[in-house]
């Protein structure tokens, strides 16, 4: 299953130097949480993940060709 990924903020260091990259996941079913593990992104550094323009939960199962964006933790505002 191929998903497209965007990393934001300091989380960019966990991916290649590209705005969007594809990742081929070697399993049929993969949740957001599992994807973060595969990409070696510490869950504690992640604020949330969105599919398209909507926040999704960490337990959401991803689908072929999903575009997900991973957002960093922020403070202040």
């Amino acid at each position: 299953m191929i998903v497209k990924i965007k990393l934001r903020g300091p989380l960019r260091k966990y991916g290649p130097d590209a705005e969007i990259f594809e990742h081929n996941i070697d399993q049929d079913r993969c949740t957001v949480k599992e994807l973060l593990e595969i990409l070696n992104i510490p869950a504690s550094s992640v604020s949330f993940v969105a599919r398209g323009e909507n926040k999704i939960s960490l337990d959401t199962a991803l689908k072929e060709n999903d575009l997900v964006t991973v957002y960093p933790r922020v403070a202040g505002g």
Partner: peptide
Amino acid sequence: TDDNMWAYSD
């Protein structure tokens, strides 16, 4: 750290 570097990166 990852918790704060959003300020620098973005």
